[in-house]
Amino acid sequence: MDVATVKSWIQTKQIPSFMIFSGPEWTVQKIYINKISEVVDGTLKYVDSIADIYSSLRSRNLIAKKNVYVIRDDKDILTNEKLQEQLNGELLGNNTLIYLLTTVDKRTKFYKAYKDTIIDFEPLKPAILKKYIQREIELPDKSAEKLMEVCEYDYGRCLLEIDKIRQYVAGGFNLSEQAQKFDKSRWNIAFEQLLADGTIYQPPKDAIFDLVDAILDRKVNESFNLLGQSYEVGEATMVMLSVLYNNTKAVLQVQSCEERDVAKNTGLSGWQIMNARKHIGKYRNGELVNILRLVRECEKGIKIGQYEDSDVMEYILVNVL
């Protein structure tokens, strides 16, 4: 089921007593949980496990107030079928229980039994997320999209970064002047400054292709920086070697091709040729052959245990650049 179902429950005020929410959008879940507690007029209580409330659920009190319990990833609910039956039956009485599952293992019995009733909170669509961001602070489309990108399209993270921007704007004494000067909103200026100084965290990107481009362009500092970033995201040395090898070979083929029809002569695709052309002239053909030899020597060294794969890329950079 999707979020629309919960919406319809709230609109018709027909809230089931036991609900299962799953998915990464915790912030959106929280909005719906608050709304549900308003609709059922119950006290919202976050509890650690079903065991904490089980005895109070069993002993009914006629004058007790309604509660909306929220439990995250409780193992008992997940595995105890008898308990699941009780929760779907009379155990909850007037109370409501929302069971949050961070991730759902589709192989489990629980999933098979409840797959039609689990409400999936999928990440918000970019267009909707952008609207939500712009509702919070006045950011132009481009900046809002950048914010979404650095927050990996997670609404919760977007809100946390928006909070940082708000704090910065509240304390930024000359933001209004800069905003006038650059004809931008204060929010936008604050966002750009926080992004530049690293207060808004930008996760490292898949740097492997940029790394290989930097090596083939003979950019020394950039190559070492990107190598660090590649290790940060856990890129495997063998993959780096493979991409470096293939791209170097393509540059060599394109650079040494004297015919007009490069694709026909080299057997490379149009995209590969276009990519290789960017690096033409940075190395002589002999140097490119040496890179190929070096990469292959390192690859062979790793396979036979002669080289440690963690040192190989630095070794290549030192020898090539």
Partner: peptide, 19 residues
């Protein structure tokens, strides 16, 4: 003889052999 190394890139062996 290099072809007996497990997991060696045959493409790499071939290219360097040509060169």
């Amino acid at each position: 003889s290099e072809l007996s190394i497990t997991g060696i890139s045959k493409q790499g062996v071939m290219d360097l052999w040509i060169l």
